[in-house]
Design a protein around this nucleic acid. Structure first.
Lengths: 216, 216
DNA sequence: GTCTATACTCTGATAGAC
DNA sequence: GTCTATCAGAGTATAGAC
């Protein structure tokens, strides 16, 4: 009896559907990837199931065999995203060196934007439109995490280990600056002309900026 | 033969329709205001003529009496916006004091975001979706203006009048930080809780940030 | 599981009376 | 100039054969 495969092991408490075959897993994945591409570029209303199905190489009814509705696809994408979205800030360590911790957080966030620009635009599209589908997440989990880390930063500032600073605005500035390169890629490309990585020079610039800002 | 009214005088080269009555002017204005409200919150595809007509207090066919199509309304909004969009950067004066000029630019931009958040979101929505209707504007006018002012800033840096800095990234950072408060208002509100001006503290924070960044 | 055909709704735009 | 009625097309979702 081979050990590796736990008997019909599905994470208990998970609302996802029960065990799926390999082909189902693969198709769901293709759909989510295609949906990410289309939703991030056109927003929820702007995206059509036709586009997503074409991008995924499936027929529209077949897509709807895997997900009940357009909404369901979109929610699945957001859910998958939010897991990773908090990670960079979570890693900010209260017992680390303040400047290193904040700089590292900024770089992790920038790296996320570079590696996952579509996810960033999906998120931006949602916020821009009033965040109707993210209200729960933002006002509970994200808010709590931000407040927690803001306290840490405020304590560092009070102790004189970094320059005095408003911690919420510091966090907002990191979000704004790092996500800008993903969300506004179209504009940056048009201004710098083609053949440039939109993130070119961003790491060095932001590193310099925050070192100056935080130096006690 | 009365002099004051030039025969069918329309600005030559203008594509706009001929002289309009007061009531027409007023209705066009109402429609544009309503459209700004709806487009900025839902994007082009997400907005419907029904919503815009309702917001403007008109019937849908009546709206289409004033504008040929949904596209036309949207283009009119963008055109009106782009005139004002370049103004803050245009005012950056090469013969002024470098730090004052850059700080003033940042504050003008922040003030624009605070006073016209819907315009900012309209613009953000466009860029986020690949800027199809702004390609001409960005790759010509905006690009030329940015390059011109970047040269000015670069010269200031070379002369040691401000700290050495990449001028394009400096400009991008000002855009990112000032527009963030308008574009991501929903998120900021949810994190800080209700009853707060989303721009609260932004002026002081950004002022401090750029003073530190630019000090030679 | 996947497809073709189709039902039904929403939405942009037009016709035509007033 | 403004409205009611309506068309035509797009888009989500379902039925049912294979």
């Amino acid at each position: 009896m081979p050990a590796p495969r736990p008997p019909s092991a599905e994470k208990p408490g998970t609302l996802a559907k029960p065990a799926r075959s390999r082909i189902q897993q693969r198709n769901r994945q293709r759909i989510l990837d295609a949906a990410l591409e289309v939703f991030s570029n056109h927003g929820f209303r702007g995206a059509t199931l036709d586009q997503i199905a074409a991008e995924a190489g499936l027929s529209k009814p077949n897509l709807l065999y895997y997900f009940d509705s357009k909404e369901t696809v979109h929610r699945a994408l957001l859910t998958r995203l939010l897991d990773d979205w908090l990670a960079p800030l979570r890693k900010l360590d209260p017992s680390g060196a303040p400047d290193v911790e904040i700089l590292s957080y900024m770089h992790r966030k920038l790296e996320m934007s570079r590696a996952y620009p579509r996810e960033s635009r999906l998120f931006a599209n949602e916020i821009l439109q009033g965040a109707p589908r993210l209200e729960g997440f933002i006002s509970t989990e994200l808010r709590a995490l931000v407040d927690e880390k803001a306290s840490v930063i405020a304590a560092w500032a009070r102790a004189g280990r970094i320059a005095p600073i408003d911690p919420h605005h510091l966090i907002f500035s990191i979000w704004a600056l790092t996500q800008h390169y993903a969300d506004f890629t179209a504009q940056i490309d048009m201004i710098r002309g083609p053949g440039h990585d939109p993130f070119e020079g961003a790491g060095a610039f932001l590193d310099h900026l925050y070192k100056r800002l935080l130096a006690p």
